[in-house]
Each structure stands twice: as structure tokens, then as C-alpha cells.
């Protein structure tokens, strides 16, 4: 595993109180003053935080028009679009960071999306729910049915999460496509950083969410 030592993170001066934990962890991974594209920007809290606390030129793409309107009306640069269809248009190296949080498992072509993220950005930050979590494994083993947990909460026939993957799957894809994992971490059920960073096998069992910072080799 090609892990580099983590630079001391900037202390966070401000985060929206109700900001999702993974967004807070993502914000910590982004250097101040960066050009950032947030794919699936939702209510825009990450781009607002990055603009206000880190002086980033942060923009968003969001598929839900109501969220887009709310974000733009809030003064945030967000455009309607989606990961599968809009990334191809951006020129190479247009951003320092391209973020895809909790969406990798829901896109049509995750591998293509990752490829574009690392084409248009120097670095990619990806978070996803870990399908290797012990509860998911246990449910599939014991009931023989698709797991239903707080994270994987929709029935197989209507879930938007059409490409579930595990931490190990993601690591394997990065190796296969030549991406360097600069940082990664797993978060447990309580939202705490898991202590298994040196042991991907354990993280893949106990981590509920995974977060990767990648760059091209």
C-alpha cells in the first residue's frame, strides 16, 4: 500500500454545525486556496465551508434541481448536472481537488468517473459506504437476502446504490488503474475515525464509511 505520511491538518476554524462528518473530514484533507469541484454538492455545505474557512475556489455539481436552486440562491456556484455525464467536458487539470462524497456506489460507471476525476483534478477525494462492513456480511450470510442496514436502507430493486463496493475493492481498483492512495480512513458506526488504519482488513470489517484521497501515479 502506497501510503504517505499525513501532513498536519489545518485547525478547522469554522464548520457548519450540522455538517456531515465525512464532509468535515474531507474539508480537512483539502489545502487552503485550492480549486475544488464537489460532485454531488447537495445543500452546498462543503463548498461554503471551503470558501469561508479555507479561501478555496469551490464549485458544485448537483443532480437535484431543488438543491441547485437553493445553493445558487445562497450565493454558491453550483450547476445542475451529474457525475456520469458532465465530467467529460472539463479540461485536464482544471481543479486541484475533485470531491465525490457518498456517491461512487450510485454512479453508472464508477471507474470512468474516477478516471475523469483524476484527469480534471490533480487529486480526487472519494467517500463511500463500505459494503464490507461486518453487519452487511453477517446479514447476507445468515439470511441469504440482500442486507438492509441504516446505511444500506433501500431494497435491492429500488436502491440507487447500484455499484456497492468494499474498502478492499476500492484499493484494488486504485492499484489496477495506477492511482496512489495518499490518505485513507475508515469511520465506524459512531462516526469516529477507526483505529485500524494500518490494517485494511480490519477496517474493511469495522469501517462503515471509507474516505480516500487519491492522485495519479
Amino acid at each position: 500500500m502506497n501510503q504517505i505520511s499525513r501532513p498536519a491538518p489545518e485547525p478547522i476554524k469554522f464548520v457548519a454545525k450540522n455538517m456531515r462528518l465525512d464532509l468535515r473530514l474531507i474539508a480537512e484533507m483539502i489545502e487552503p486556496g485550492s480549486r475544488v469541484l464537489d460532485i454531488g454538492s447537495g445543500d452546498g455545505s462543503l463548498i461554503e465551508t471551503l470558501f469561508r474557512t479555507r479561501g478555496c475556489d469551490a464549485r458544485g455539481i448537483e443532480i437535484d434541481m431543488a438543491e441547485v436552486t437553493r445553493s445558487v440562491a445562497h450565493g454558491l456556484p453550483v450547476m445542475h448536472g451529474d457525475a456520469d455525464h458532465d465530467l467529460a467536458e472539463y479540461p485536464d487539470g482544471a481543479f486541484d481537488f475533485v470531491v465525490l462524497s457518498r456517491t461512487l456506489q450510485a454512479v453508472e460507471r464508477p471507474r470512468e468517473v474516477l478516471r475523469h476525476m483524476l484527469r480534471i483534478g490533480t487529486r480526487a477525494i472519494v467517500s463511500f459506504p463500505n459494503f464490507g462492513h461486518w453487519l452487511v456480511r453477517l446479514q447476507l450470510l445468515s439470511t441469504g437476502r440482500m442486507p438492509m442496514t441504516s446505511v444500506w436502507s433501500r431494497a435491492w430493486y429500488e436502491t440507487p446504490n447500484i455499484h456497492p463496493c468494499t474498502i478492499r475493492d476500492c484499493m484494488a481498483l486504485c492499484e489496477q488503474d495506477g492511482y496512489v492512495i495518499e490518505q485513507w480512513l475508515a469511520v465506524d458506526d459512531a462516526g469516529q475515525r477507526s483505529p485500524w488504519r494500518r490494517f485494511p482488513g480490519l477496517a474493511n470489517i469495522f469501517g462503515e464509511q471509507a474516505l480516500f484521497r487519491l492522485r495519479k501515479a
Binding site: 475556489d57 436552486t69 450547476m79 479540461p91
Partner: peptide, 18 residues
């Protein structure tokens, strides 16, 4: 138009009003 602006790496917001 938005996609052309993306190709130019412009800062663009885009909304369709229902």
C-alpha cells in the same frame, strides 16, 4: 452553453426553473 463554459473551465452556476 454550460458544457461549453465547463470546457473553458469557467465558473458557472446553472439552474432550470420549473
Amino acid at each position: 452553453l454550460v458544457r461549453a463554459l465547463n470546457r473553458a473551465a469557467a465558473n458557472v452556476s446553472f439552474v432550470e426553473i420549473p
